[in-house]
C-alpha cells in the first residue's frame, strides 16, 4: 500500500496531505483537518449528512477518494460560517427552529448554499428536490424547507440592500 500526497484547497486555504489509498474526503476533513462539522451518517451516500461543496457543487464526502479530486476547491460548514455572525442560511435555520438534534444540519445547510447560489429564488418544490438526498429524522422537514426559503429572502434582500 502506497500513500500519496494530495493537494486540496479547503475553505480557501491550500492544504497538502499524505493519504492512504482510497481515503475519503470525509476522513481527511474530519481526521487530518479537524473539520468535524461535516458529519458521518452512513458512509453509503444515502443520508447526506456529510455533504460538502466540491468546486461549487454538492458532493457526499464519504464517497470521494481524495486522490480523485486533486486540486479541487472544497467548502465545508466551517468555511461557510463568516468570521463574525452567521451566514444568512445559518441565521434562517436558527430563527426558524430548523434544528433539533443538529446532526443533519451541516449537510442541509451546504445543500441549501449550493441551491441558492444556482437559484436565488427557488420554489418550495425546488427546495424539496435539493434536500431530497438529506435525511432528517427529527423535524419532519417542514421547518428546514421554510428556513431555506427564508434564507433565499434574506440573501436577496441583503444583495438588494448592497446594490442600493
Amino acid at each position: 500500500m502506497k500513500h500519496s500526497v494530495v493537494s486540496l484547497t479547503i475553505n480557501g486555504a491550500e492544504r497538502q496531505m499524505l493519504v492512504a489509498p482510497g481515503s475519503t474526503l470525509i476522513d481527511v476533513l474530519r481526521e487530518s483537518q479537524g473539520l468535524t462539522g461535516t458529519r458521518r451518517g452512513c458512509e453509503q451516500g444515502a443520508c447526506g449528512t456529510c455533504t460538502v461543496l466540491v468546486d461549487g457543487k454538492t458532493a457526499m464526502s464519504c464517497m470521494l477518494p481524495v486522490e480523485t479530486i486533486e486540486g479541487a476547491h472544497v467548502e465545508t460548514i466551517e468555511g461557510l460560517t463568516p468570521p463574525q455572525g452567521l451566514h444568512p442560511i445559518q441565521e434562517a435555520f436558527l430563527q426558524g427552529f430548523a434544528t433539533q438534534c443538529g446532526f443533519c444540519t451541516s449537510g442541509m445547510i451546504m445543500v441549501a448554499a449550493a441551491l441558492l447560489a444556482k437559484n436565488p429564488n427557488p420554489s418550495r418544490e425546488d427546495v424539496v428536490r435539493a434536500i431530497s438526498g438529506n435525511i432528517c429524522r427529527c423535524t419532519g422537514y417542514e421547518a428546514i424547507i421554510d428556513a431555506i426559503l427564508d434564507a433565499a429572502v434574506r440573501i436577496r434582500s441583503a444583495a438588494h440592500a448592497e446594490a442600493a
Partner: peptide
C-alpha cells in the same frame, strides 16, 4: 411545535 411536527411525520 418541533416535537409535534416531527412526531406526526414519524
Amino acid at each position: 411545535h418541533q416535537q409535534i411536527v416531527g412526531g406526526a411525520w414519524m
